[in-house]
Simulated scan of single mutants.
Amino acid sequence: MTTLDVRARRTTGRPRAGAHVFLLVLTVALLAPVAWAVLSSFKPAGEIIRDPLGFDPATLTFANFRGMFQDVPIGSGFLNTGVVLVAKGAITMFCAPLAAFAFAKYSFRGKNLIFGTVLLTLMLPVIVLIIPLLLEMKELGWVNTYQALILPGSVDAFAIFWMRQVIAAVPDELLDAARVDGCGEFAIFLRVIVPAIRPGLAGLGVLTIMNIYNDFVWPVVAASSSRMATLQVVLSTLAQNIKGNRVGADYATVTGELLAAASIALIPLLILFIVLQKHFINGILAGSVKG
């Protein structure tokens, strides 16, 4: 091994080591608050206030979780979120790739204008659309219904843009070969496009689930009744519910049950990311191709 080879290894090793240290520090900084919240949810309520950074396994308790399930309708929040997630996610995952297929592989009058208009909607703040959408829901009689939670925003402009970028990378020769074999356009989409864009669909699916699961602004406006409240709306009103259902509940009790509820809400997304981590990364890379 020559001196040049040794120097090359040293110069390439230093940036890698530095990058690893930086990523490790960043990971610890991001996960530390989450770990603290989960561990604190198993502490007695008084200990959370008296010794917020300490944790004694001998004092481990499930009292915060028991009290939270008694005081807060978190079960109905999970149910409503699940219904919205399945229905809205299905609409997004079906309609967005179809629209992207048209934009990526067909030429028609006004195509660029329509696609540009779709992209312009990404620049509109959500707060600007709330009042018009709410008035529309009122006219349709959909306030405090699943329709109001599911239909608005179900075909997302970002999803269309992402899928267009992915589908544009599929060779046109595959589509022409399918047409020669007698496939119709929808059959081409199902048999040629969908198998070719599975990584992109997986990435879009993970992002769609996360966006719907974490959505708060629209559900809190469209579903003001506790019966239709999604999980994020339930979490936002935890303190009021706890104090309303338990007379004399102090700050420590409210904090403990808040941490317990937050820990429960974290579980589905954590499982989702662990199971679909590989597909999510592949989907991100698939969506970065130039169309």
Rank of each mutant, 00 (worst) to 15 (best):
K111C: 10
G200M: 06
G89I: 11
F161C: 09
N245R: 14
A229C: 03
I74D: 02
T11Y: 14
V25T: 12
L140V: 12
V233K: 03
V221K: 05
E173A: 12
L272F: 07
L272Q: 05
I212P: 04
K138E: 15
G205M: 10
C183I: 08
A37E: 07
F65T: 06
V155S: 05
G46Q: 10
R198A: 10
V220C: 10
L175T: 13
L270N: 03
R198K: 12
Q70K: 15
M137I: 12
P73F: 03
V21Q: 01
A32E: 03
V206F: 09
V170F: 05
L190T: 07
N80F: 05
A37L: 13
G46I: 12
N214K: 06
K111A: 09
W218A: 03
W36R: 07
V192M: 00
P15L: 13
T61E: 00
F186P: 10
I193E: 00
F69R: 04
V180P: 12
P195K: 03
C95L: 14
V143P: 14
L204S: 09
M93T: 08
P44M: 02
S107R: 14
F22D: 04
S236L: 08
I48H: 00
F186H: 04
L285A: 15
F42K: 00
L207T: 14
A178T: 07
M137N: 13
F94H: 06
I271T: 08
D215F: 07
K111Y: 04
A63W: 00
T145W: 10
A249R: 09
D176C: 13
A177D: 04
L98V: 11
A32Y: 13
F69I: 14
R50G: 12
F65G: 08
K105M: 02
A45D: 02
